[in-house]
Every structure is written in C-alpha cells, then in structure tokens.
Design a protein around this nucleic acid. Structure first.
Length: 458
RNA sequence: GCCGGUGUAGCUCAGCCUGGCAGAGCAGCGGCCUUUUAAGCCGAGGGUCCAGGGUUCGAAUCCCUGCGCCGGCACCA
C-alpha cells in the first residue's frame, strides 16, 4: 500500500456516534488489529490507532465472500476499514465493517493480549512491541514530550532564547565526568562528546545574549543504574544580571508550570510518596542541614575528617575540607530530604564554576533543588572573574592529581571569553530525564527513554 | 569491577527446594457456533529449559564457568 486515507481516528469515530445509536455515515479508519473474538457469522475485533481502540464488527451477511478473508486476519495486522458507527447490542461503540483492506501483514505475533509484554529486557530491546502492547508506556512517553515542550514554552515565555551549542568539543568542560572520546579524521583531531552545556552557553552570555537556554543531550562515560544512562537530556539556562536567589524564584514558577504541562497537580505522588511542589520550597543552607542531621558544625569543627568518621562517613586522609563537607551531606542528609528543598551554599572546593560567598569564602552561591532524596536541579551565581576561575581550575587539577578521579580541565577558550568581561549571571541545570521520572512516577530512567543503553544481546 | 536475584513454547507463567516422559493459559493451526468484551467448546501441533562444562544410571532441577536482564555497592562531586 502506498497510502490509505482515513476520515476518522478511532476516537473521532467514537465522538461521531456520540450518545446516539447510529448508524452514522460511514467512516474510514486505519490501525492495528489487536483482538479477534467469535468466529461464526459475526466476528468482533478491536482496532488500535494512535488515539485509542474501537471495536469492529464483521458480518458474513454484509461482507459475503470477503468475510473469509477477514477471518484470515491476524492480531497485529495493519488494517483499513470503512463502515457506519453503531452501538452493539451490548452497548459497545462499534464500526459495522462494509469494506476492509489489509494495509500491512504482521509476520510476528503480538504478545499475550491480557498480560502484555512484561519481560523488561524485551520491552527495552523491542520498544516498538512494548508501545503496541502496553498503553501505559505510550502515556509515559507522551507525557515526556509534553513536559519538554512545556519547559520550552515556559522558557520562551520568560524571554529566553533557545540556542544550540557543539556536542563535539576539544575540552569536555562544565562538569566532572568521564567523557566519550572520538576523532575527527579530516582535522586529525581528538574530540569529546559534551558532558554538560555550561561553558558554551556562558560564552553566549559574554556575547550579549542575556537570557539563553539549551535543551540537549549530554554524554557521560560512566556506570548505568536506574538513574543513569550514558546519554541523557539536560536543560541549562543562563540569565545575565541575575543571581541564585533569582534562579530559586524562577524555579518556583517553572516547576508548577511544568507539572501542569504533564497534566499533574503540584501535590503529586512519586513511588507511593506524596510530594508537594506548591511553592515556596524550603530553603536551607547545607551547613545547617548537616548540623541538623549529624550534630556536626562544619563551620567550627576543628577536625572535620575525624568528626565525619565518627558519624560513619569515612573519607580519604587529607581530603580538602569542602569534599568532606560534601561527603557528609551526600551520605547523611540528601536522601532524607523528601519534600522539595533548596539546599544552599555548597563548599567552594566542589564548585569550581560558582561565585564565592562574600560573607564566607569557604562557600559559594550555589544550590541544588532536592526532592524525594534526589537532585533535580543544580544552579549557581556564576563565577565571572577570569583570574579566580583560572585559580579554581588549577586547584581542581591539584586535588584530583592527588586524590584521583576526573577533573575540570583547563578550558583556555572559556577563560579568554571571561577575560572579555562576563556580566553577573545566574545559571541553572535540570536533569530532564529525572524530572520526567518524577512527573510520570517512573522508578527507572530506562522507562522514560525510548531506547535505553543495553549491553550486546547474547 | 564487586555482591545478590533471575533466565523454561511467540507471549504470560508453573515445574527447580526434595533429580525420574517438558507442562498450563493466551497466540498460531483444523473444526463448531450470527452480538462478542481476556468469548466459549472439540482436536492436533509447537521447546537449544540462556550457553558451555561437571556430578549422576538419569539433570530444566544439583555444582562450576560464561553471557543477558533486574537490584544493590563502587564509579558518577
């Protein structure tokens, strides 16, 4: 079949009948045959299209010789049908088929009609079957699309300009993660897939695009888990002449708007837990949260490593102060934060791109929004001082040379941009997949990605 | 990478503990039935029990190794 023109979707056909009994004028539908029942002189079947399902009725009386061909159809076949919409004796909205046409034959059977496809491995490896057989899965992905378009709509409405920046980078900056490496042949140049959007967007802020954002795929060459996929989607935005307090207020508008675009209420349920996203959200300094949870005062504690160990958080000897603070926070505080909370003022040591607090230079103006024990957003008042920035990169290098792990590499192009003069800026990053998980009540990132990363099938 | 769980028909699952002919439902095939809603009834068929090795008279079942999947840990500030 080159083409087949339908007059109605199954949902439109249902509306065409309305409360009446029919018959309506004939409608032409197309979709996948899902279920057949009865095989005498009348056969009922269900046709599934992009909008839903509708019952079909095929009668020997009506179809004559073609009836036998209808009986030969298999669940899974793609079918076009024409006929009036009626209400069956049992009250079901039904198309009384006058004509039908096989549009495409399914050579493989559908999964079990009642249980659907449950095997998670098959659901991920053969997502097309999952989508046919499990309507809930389709709903999740439709919600994902609505959430992302809702995010864009909100950003646009606030005057942000959506931009695109390079995926292939000579220096994979803006975060700490092992990058994927590739090579450009013509340039004979090693390149990396980006691990964050940050540095290029900030270069645009220098360039005078005062409110920019990007929704883009980033890549991290690290382990997989229910919350980690090697490629995932980030939204980052930057606003000139704003600080992290502005970003907090901004998020308190963005999140409710996004929740609405997902068709949810701010008071939502995630994995059996009620979470209330009606603003304002709690604001708490990391140091205060640590004191609440452990009794440790990181501001005054003379031997923080020892205090951490006493609280059950073992850290490497001589680890810089800020890293110890971060360890204690992650091990003792973060998972306990269930309701949305702005965790404010991160240690400077672990935040090389954020602006130093003037009242206490051990900390920076940075927050993460945490809910259900997980980071949803990361934001800061950006560091715009090129001299300070260079020192921070060097300090990172020194730390990671000593303690291992990934480091922020020195990005000279970025430093040159800062030297041009960057306005004070508030920046924000949102892990879009994790936000979608939250708003669709999914426990695994694999259930909000059409094609999650899998090992080679055996 | 480490630890635990798991893998049986196209799909959903029993059987494994306690070794003894490979099972059910759905789907498919043949037959009956002109208003069904997971339709029903009758009949026949369908297996690399993830792979390889071992123990045993005999292995889906017990043991070892490998692989996939799931979860946890590590990595991921």
């Amino acid at each position: 079949m080159r083409s087949f023109h339908r007059t109605h979707t199954t949902t439109a056909a249902r509306h065409a009948l309305g409360d009446g009994e029919g018959p309506t004028d004939p409608v032409t539908l197309a979709g996948r045959l899902m279920v057949k029942r009865w095989s005498g002189g009348v056969t009922f079947a269900e046709l599934q299209d992009g909008t839903g399902r509708l019952q079909l009725m095929a009668r020997r009386d009506e179809l004559a010789d073609a009836y036998e061909a209808f009986l030969d159809l298999d669940p899974g076949d793609l079918l076009g049908v024409t006929g009036p919409v009626i209400r069956s004796r049992r009250g079901e909205v039904t198309v009384d088929v006058n004509k039908f046409q096989l549009l495409s034959k399914a050579l493989r059977p559908l999964p079990e009609k009642w249980h659907g496809l449950k095997d998670v491995e098959q659901r991920y490896r053969r997502r097309h079957v999952d989508l046919i057989a499990n309507p809930d899965v389709r709903d999740v992905f439709v919600a994902r699309t609505r959430i992302i378009s809702g995010l864009r709509r909100f950003m646009d409405s606030q005057g942000f300009l959506e931009v695109e920046t390079p995926v292939l980078q000579e220096v994979p900056g803006g975060g700490l993660a092992r990058p994927f490496k590739t090579h450009h042949n013509a340039l004979d140049l090693d390149l990396y897939l980006r691990i964050a959007l940050e540095l290029h967007l900030k270069r645009l802020i220098v360039g005078g695009l005062e409110k920019v954002y990007e929704v883009g795929r980033v890549f991290r060459n690290e382990g997989l888990s229910p919350r980690h996929n090697p490629e995932f989607t980030m939204l980052e935005s930057y606003e000139a002449y704003a600080d992290y307090d502005d970003v907090m207020r901004f998020l308190e508008e963005l999140l409710p708007a996004t929740i609405e675009s997902a068709g949810k209420e701010p008071d939502l349920e995630y994995q059996g837990e009620r979470l209330d996203f009606a603003p304002p959200y709690r604001r708490a300094r990391m140091a205060d949260l640590i004191r609440e949870a452990t009794g440790i005062d990181v501001l005054t504690e003379p031997d923080l490593a020892a205090a951490a160990a006493k609280a059950g958080v073992d850290v490497q000897a001589n680890l810089p102060w800020g890293f110890i603070v971060m360890e204690i926070y992650e091990k003792k505080v973060e998972t306990g934060l269930r309701q949305p909370t702005f965790v404010m003022d991160y240690p400077l040591d672990v935040s090389p791109l954020a602006r130093k607090r003037e009242d206490d230079p051990r900390f920076v103006e940075r927050f993460e929004l945490v809910a259900a024990g997980r980071e949803l957003c990361n934001a800061f008042t950006e560091l715009t001082d090129p001299v300070d920035q260079r020192e921070r990169f060097l300090a990172q290098e020194a730390t990671f040379k000593a303690f291992g792990g990934e480091t922020h590499p020195m990005d000279e192009d970025y430093l040159v941009a800062l030297e041009q003069g960057m306005p004070p800026t508030g920046g924000l990053g949102i892990g879009v997949d994790r936000l979608v998980m939250l708003l669709t009540d999914q426990a695994s990132i694999r259930d909000v990605l059409f094609f999650p990363q899998m090992r080679l099938a055996h």
